[in-house]
Write a protein that binds this DNA or RNA. Structure first.
Lengths: 303, 303
DNA sequence: TCCACTTATACTCATACAGAGCAAAAGAAC
DNA sequence: GTTCTTTTGCTCTGTATGAGTATAAGTGGA
């Protein structure tokens, strides 16, 4: 037996590619026979000069999309994170990318954030599913464990705690531990029960990775002008607001949002207008110069 | 020749372990014949269940310290990040740990942040080295390149730009590119010139990793109560303030700092006092409960 | 043509909070 | 006691945010 030593360590790159269309944030996924997965593949040590370029390569190969903005998200490397693989130790470095939506190759498609995490969309109020299904089921799992009680309160905003859009991963992990997502069972080779709360499952720990990405992006919105990566060259302030709301998952006060964006010098009017069904709206474009003018541009933290 | 195939991929874990004593933030380093390095070592796929535990293990083996708080920092994996290694592709996952200072084993020691980055300490005003040495040398390297001009302005706060303590990595990278740190030369097997700005060099890209850690920690201070990991059980508000100032690298307004900390409910008095050379100060302790009370505790963002 | 409706935009007001400084309190050193 | 040092309490001001009111400028239908 020559040449094939057992692989003890393998490194995969996962891309969480986000776009927003029709007020819905979506993530790029690859279809499989079972659960959908993120575009991903191993690092080629000899030909991929950087991890980032490797992600770009895999995403393009599997979905046909060329990426613009991209940043490293997290490295996942716990033993048993992919029980389906067995002997090899899987490590994966996940990246977050943002694109203005375009059509991917046929083998790929877009999956709505809020199909993955229905409890995360608070734009039209607190989703019914939280108090109708999730909190009751969590409550019985939590029992009288002080720590679990605190986690539930803080993540799902029970007992007067305010909702914090950034805690996406904490919420997912709580539900995972409590056996409220399909992955809790799949990972242990158990059949998923019938009456789980809604929420599309994904392969491996990809839903967890996406939860990390959603939280990161929501946080970043408030202190870096990343939204503009998701928008066309020109846009109305309402469109901008709706994209931000879609990502943040909460509604924003329209007048104050405008004030914030304009005061921060993030945009400049183009003179042109777009008809909207009501009074026509002025078109704006992102002022790339803010980066070199303002100390830390971003869309404040009203949310 | 049997059994020794070329290693194509190796995974190392690096720990950036921070402590603050005598108003100086320090990072745990291991002495070597040449440049000091971070405690680090490869992942043992069969015995390290998680990356985090592997870091803890390596740090303890090499320095004798047991870690408390720890979080993942970044994964470095560019080809050529360790030119000294040659054929193997090195990947490293860095972690940031915080401890109340104790004595490490003899082979290890503490290195001051501000010996590594003398330009980062603005507690007693803008360091002379910036305008006397760094900015002049950068200016000639920058030339008329628009992008470089903007980077210098934003990172080193020239031309009325405010100083941003978080941009530690950006500053280090600018200096690296401009050939103002020893690593620029070491990495290319060139002898380092004599008249570099002050700043202790480290092995491999470890100074870059520490720069990442410093920036991350400075940022995190403002929205998570992490300082307390570095403090003893009981402390005066002045001690707390000095530790925060040491990390942030900027002076804080004493009265406002107190107001902030107390209003946030981060601490509670113990009744006891400590003599200080002036009026005795009350001793406080961290209120761990804030985590479950406040939505996002931290020490505001006055800095 | 006029009216109802929709969306965009301008402005106001109360409150909270950050930045800055003054002043008193409580000990130590002499 | 007096002086010095550090802690602690409090005030004042400007600015940013949260929330709401009012007006502008289109569309579509009666």
């Amino acid at each position: 037996m020559t040449g094939s030593l057992p692989l003890v360590l393998s490194l995969t790159l996962d891309g969480v590619i986000v776009a927003v269309t029709e007020d819905t944030p979506r993530v790029l996924t690859v279809r499989t026979e079972s659960y959908p997965r993120l575009p991903s593949g191993p690092l080629e040590p000899d030909t991929d000069p950087t991890l980032e370029l490797a992600v770009r390569r895999w995403v393009e190969e599997q979905t046909g999309l060329e990426l613009g903005y991209i940043e490293q998200l997290y490295t996942f490397g716990d033993a048993g994170r992919r029980p389906e693989v067995g002997d090899a130790r899987m490590l994966s470095v996940a990246y977050l990318g943002l694109v203005a939506e375009t059509d991917p190759a046929a083998s790929a498609g877009w999956t709505d954030w809020y199909d993955l995490f229905p409890w995360e969309d608070h734009r039209t109020g607190r989703p019914r599913v939280i108090d109708d299904i999730i909190v009751p089921r969590l409550t019985s799992w939590v029992g009288s464990d002080r720590d679990r009680v605190a986690r539930m309160r803080r993540t799902f905003a029970t007992a007067d705690f305010p909702w914090d859009g950034v805690r996406v991963l904490e919420r997912y992990e709580l539900m995972y531990e409590a056996g409220l997502v399909a992955e809790s069972f799949v990972d242990r080779n158990l059949p998923a029960p019938n009456h789980l709360p809604p929420g599309v499952a994904m392969a491996s720990d990809h839903r967890r990775i996406i939860a990390t990405a959603v939280g990161r992006l929501r946080g970043k919105l408030t202190y870096r002008p990343v939204v503009f990566e998701l928008l066309p060259e020109e846009f109305t302030l309402s469109v901008l607001q709706r994209v931000v709301e879609a990502l943040a998952g909460v509604p924003l006060h329209k007048q104050n949002f405008r004030r914030l964006v304009e005061r921060a010098g993030l945009v400049e009017g183009t003179g042109a207008t777009a008809s909207t069904g009501g009074r026509p709206a002025e078109l704006f474009r992102f002022r790339r110069e803010v980066t070199s003018e303002q100390p830390r541009p971003g869309i404040g933290r009203p949310w």
